[in-house]
Design a protein around this nucleic acid. Structure first.
Length: 214
DNA sequence: GACCAGGCACATC
DNA sequence: GATGTGCATGGT
């Protein structure tokens, strides 16, 4: 449906004109992005930054180093990101997967096909759809659209998607109606998150929202 | 002091 | 399959 396509592109343009390019994901390496994707689950990014800073300061941002780190120690380093007990486990689960399947090598992981890799990521305990898709898009540059609470809230509020729609259906809606383009998916999700954070919280601040007229 | 943040797994019905 | 709950820090 061309109408949906035009609408989604128009919304993107409005956000982009408002905020400018965001150049996500904040992070110096694909590995850092993957760790950040797990740490940011239901957590504000500033808290995640503190945790990542702790790891960087100790020169521990490396799959083998992190995996061999005692749980106690890892837990204290990532404490600022909250949920530190479950996140310690989730990080270790991911690291075990990353090392056993790909020897901790991002390039080897990238060779895997998109949907097979997604399925494997979802099999890791602690990696759900948004985390898997964030890793795929932002760390591995695979063409997949990341959905989050803001996506559902904003597009629901504008009656573009029904309130009952689930994750996979939202993702399909965007991917069916947008050109398959890693750069576009990257920037689109980033713009949604910033719009959500800034204007479309549970209590909306619609006055200056770039999407107030759509 | 309540509410929120770039989720996820698990229990229960 | 839908709905509810625990996990925890730090900013507003």
């Amino acid at each position: 449906m061309k109408k949906n396509r035009d609408r989604l592109l128009k919304i993107f343009q409005k956000m982009y004109d408002h905020f400018g390019p965001l150049n996500w994901w904040p992070g110096d390496s694909p590995f850092e992005i993957m760790i950040g994707a797990i740490l940011t689950q239901n957590t504000s990014w500033t808290n995640v930054e503190r945790a990542i800073e702790n790891l960087k300061r100790e020169n521990l941002l490396d799959p083998y180093k992190l995996l061999s780190l005692p749980d106690e120690r890892l837990r204290e380093l990532i404490r600022p990101s909250g949920f530190f007990n479950v996140k310690t486990k989730r990080l270790k689960n991911f690291l075990n997967f990353f090392i056993s399947e790909y020897e901790g090598n991002v390039e080897k992981m990238k060779k895997e096909s998109l949907w097979l890799l997604r399925k494997k990521l979802l099999d890791v305990d602690g990696i759900g759809k948004e985390t898997a898709d964030s890793i795929l898009l932002y760390a591995l540059e695979k063409p997949i659209f990341v959905v989050d609470a803001y996506t559902k809230r904003i597009f629901g509020r504008h009656n573009i998607i029904p309130p009952t729609i689930d994750y996979d259906e939202i993702q399909k809606f965007f991917m069916k109606n947008l050109p398959e383009d890693v750069g576009l998916y990257n920037e689109y999700h980033a713009q949604i998150v910033l719009t959500g954070k800034t204007y479309c919280k549970k209590k909306p601040l619609c006055d200056n929202c770039p999407l107030k007229d759509v």
